[in-house]
Nucleic acid binder design. Structure first.
Lengths: 175, 175
DNA sequence: GTCAATCTATCTATTGATAGGTAGCGATAA
DNA sequence: TTATCGCTACCTATCAATAGATAGATTGAC
């Protein structure tokens, strides 16, 4: 049985990934758990605090799963694609950071900084796994291309309501 | 001198591309033009109507500029990249449809349908310009990859606050 | 008795939306 | 010529709903 905080984070992540930061309210979240909005404020003083906790947890889970997958597959790039693909298909939602990244300066600065850190870590992780025969600048470029494509593909696939769009767009990355 | 409706559309596009649909209010827009929110409702009965007018205008302008650029450059793919690049760098904002596409089912259905139509037209345009020696399915796939990458690259570049991220990510598309 | 976890109740601000009024202009009929 | 009609482009005033947030009471386990 998960705790109230965990349920709160799960629900918030789900709703924000579905509709965006501003379309989700403490009352929504509370109602989904059968509690009152004041109780949400007990765990997260401000909405901003909830957002930051959310992105931090998301990043940790993401990299844990990624490391696991990379070891299992022995193909880092395929691992990244698989993790993104699973994030999309298991929930029919885009990446939490993809949503918050799009909302840009519509969300608190501390939150968008956290989102940017996620992307940077993601890029660095990929760049690090590419063959060292490639220059550092080129590895960085390829990593940026990879993340851009995967994030864009999630958005495109949900907008067009077809997961196959993601699969097809991601396929190019393996060439 | 532009009319009030045009100023309204310009302001709304700018603000929505910056912060998202839900973070923009009729009062914001009205205040920016020095009028009252009731006057915005005079031109657009509901917020949804404004959104739809916005996406339609955006799409028309986008394809007009794209056709022009394609003729000028004689390289359709480069033209697409240039138009996206200009959309990003001239305003430091992501694509209107990129933002609304991310917000997914947080926006009215009629609006997200319009956004999806923009993406589909975009994909079809690119697929049409690729060499006919490539199969239709493969052309479609490459077109989807292209849009996904460009949309993702805009988001990534604004999140990381560095336009060069867009340029580097987009560079792979020309190979 | 203490403390975590919840509640009730309430505040202020903002939202999308509506009803109804008004100023100014061009067309038109007396 | 002038009165007035109708229209556009705004306005004031207001609504109900919802937002984030806070103060302070209650409950129950240890």
């Amino acid at each position: 049985m998960s705790t109230t905080v965990e349920k709160l984070l799960d629900q918030a992540e789900s709703e924000i990934r579905e509709r965006g930061y501003h379309a989700v309210s403490f009352r929504d979240l509370a109602a989904s758990l059968g509690i009152k909005s004041a109780s949400v404020h007990y765990y997260f003083r401000q909405k901003e605090d909830l957002g930051i906790a959310l992105v931090k947890r998301y990043g940790e889970q993401f990299f844990n799963i990624l490391e696991e997958k990379a070891e299992e597959l022995d193909n880092p790039l395929q691992a990244v694609i698989d993790v993104y693909r699973n994030a999309l298909t298991s929930s029919d939602r885009i990446c939490l950071c993809g949503m918050l990244g799009a909302e840009g300066c519509g969300i608190p600065k501390t939150l968008s900084d956290e989102v940017a850190a996620f992307f940077q870590a993601n890029i660095d992780w990929i760049a690090e796994t590419l063959p060292k025969t490639i220059s550092a600048a080129e590895r960085k470029r390829q990593a940026e291309h990879c993340i851009a494509t995967l994030q864009g593909a999630m958005m495109l696939a949900t907008s067009l309501n077809d997961h196959k769009v993601f699969d097809r767009a991601a396929k190019s990355l393996l060439k």
